[in-house]
Amino acid sequence: MVPLSWYLVVAALLFGIGVYGVLARRNAVAILIGLELMFNAVLINVVAFWRYLHPAQVPGLVFAVVIFAVAAAEVAVGLALFIAVYRRFGSSDVDDINLLKW
């Protein structure tokens, strides 16, 4: 079996890539893509810890299922917001959304 640390390192790299996407992207939907990558890194960690620490019990899997539901809710609301913002500003570029900025 692959050592646990390999999973943790892959998840850390994926999380880092996601953070870069969230911080460096201009388009709101692209920021959401980065957010999804971060969610996935967390899921890999949760499932890996379940498998290596308590494979006989289910709480780790229940936790992962709840994360799935929260991620789906987050994406649905986020995309709806971006579509509303696009309608208001004619752009989904976060630099153009500056009503609260002086």
């Binding site: 999973y7 893509i33 999804e36 499932v47 299922v65 995309l79 579509i83 696009y86 989904s92």
Partner: peptide, 29 residues
């Protein structure tokens, strides 16, 4: 990791629903 249910749920929820939603909103905006 032998989490077979989560693997299937990952494909159904993320690939099947979330990714399609993202593609749709890219095309809408």
């Amino acid at each position: 990791l032998e989490a077979y249910f989560l693997a299937v749920a990952q494909v159904v929820i993320y690939v099947g629903a979330i990714a399609i939603l993202i593609v749709f909103s890219i095309m809408l905006t």
